[in-house]
Nucleic acid binder design. Structure first.
Length: 116
RNA sequence: UUAGCCAGCUAGGCAAUUACGCCGCAAGGUGAGGAAAGUCCGAGCAUCGCAGAGCAAUCACGCUUGAUAACGUCAAGCCAAGGUAACUUGAGGAAAAGUGCAACAGAAAGAUACCGCCACUUGUGGCAAGGGUGAAAAAGUGAGGUAAGAGCUCACUCAAAGUUAUGGUGACAUAGCUUUGCUGUAAACUCCGUGAGAUGCAAGGUGUGGAACAUAUGGGCUGCUCGUCCGUUCCCGUGACCGCUGGAGCAUGGCAGCAAUGUCAUGCCAAGAUUGAUGAUUGCCUUAAAUGACAGAACUCGGCUUAUAGGCUGACUAAAACG
RNA sequence: GCUGAUGUGGCGAAAUGGCAGACGCACAAGGUUCAGGUCCUUGUGAGAGCAAUCUCAUGCAGGUUCAAGUCCUGUCAUCAGCA
């Protein structure tokens, strides 16, 4: 369930979410959301060059991906979301990032109603 | 022991759970580095029409011998500079083919005479020892010599060119003889020698969609000239598939070589993504300490350069102490 | 992945291999004015020093040269182009 079908890929898809959706700001990351026509949730990650060289950016993306995928079963489907890293994200540990992401999806109302 | 100098090794290991890429019908297998980095050199490969040639321009390199597919790389040497030494550093051909440049200071910057010295004499001749300037001032010391002086002469020394002998594959070294006393700069132009066609996988191929035009004052990858080719063309888009990983490959051992490296035997197959796969949690072992340095493949190799925690091993030098 | 350009006071910039920082903006002080603006004059890189003055400064590290912002090599940062 967490494979290519669940990813945002194209540049126009990213641009659509940035323009049409809402955003929620955290200490280490920013969450962009918009509703989607497809049944499954789609996730994209944005980590720009300010964070560091290739090694740091890849590590951040892997950790974010792990956090997001573990939460997907608890979340509403039919949404597109983008997780954008902020410049200071490298100072946070994995568990801190996980807590913050949970707060953000609660704030955005993306948690599945049955569970919440 | 202290200080130094050179070289090499390592970049934790084995598992469990869960998540992901690729291969596979499945079971299962497999999954980043010593620099993967910078893109600074050298190649493979591809295209420019599987037709190019000459000249020019431009760029790069520049001691010797060897290694290599090749190199601007490497090894062993030579020479120069630095260091007490181990050792380090060097784009290290030509300045006597030609041109340019050498600020300021200084009389004068490859050409001279301000002060000064000497002679006759009151402005002419001779001189370059002494003075000061400068990064650099006509080779240095001593003696002879002279009106005063000067490589003008002599002795020794220094430097350069030529030449002979010996040693070395060679760069070169040592010794002798002859001649000379010539500034520095080529990382200024230049000359000499050697080399380079251009563009880079966003190359390029297959497939697919769209548009324009009807044949030229067209197009064909630095310039010019010549030759030649194209109508199956040209332009734009998409990025599905191929290119895409078995290769100047890796490991172990023997042999040759001072070494770089070569060669033989045996065994092995080890990422292939395209919003881009390695994350998270835990246990045991090694250890002084265990996830903690620098850091992530994007067509593939050989180098160079730069970043790098902690630790280990070996050779050598100087000083001091002891034997 | 590939290709190219730039780096000098607080900012924008100039500088044949020869005293680095011309010039403009900005800032500070003084003058002019009842006051402000305009205008005029002077000054302003960093450190040490009472001062004279000395040392360090052209992204960084080396090299060539008597002498380097300038020439050469390496490196770092920033910016731009190629879909």
């Amino acid at each position: 369930m967490l494979k290519k079908a669940n990813r945002l890929k194209k540049r126009y898809q990213f641009n659509y979410v940035y323009k049409a959706g809402e955003h929620f700001v955290g200490k280490a990351m920013v969450l962009y959301t918009s509703t989607s026509k497809t049944k499954n949730i789609k996730v994209g990650f944005a980590v720009n060059k300010k964070i560091g060289h290739a090694f740091k950016r890849n590590l951040i993306k892997r950790r974010l991906r792990e956090i997001v995928y573990s939460e997907i079963p608890n979340m509403k489907q039919q949404y597109n979301i983008i997780v954008m890293a902020r410049e200071n994200i490298f100072d946070f540990s994995f568990s801190e990032l996980s807590e913050e992401f949970q707060k953000l999806i609660l704030k955005a109302g993306l948690l599945n109603e049955k569970i919440s």
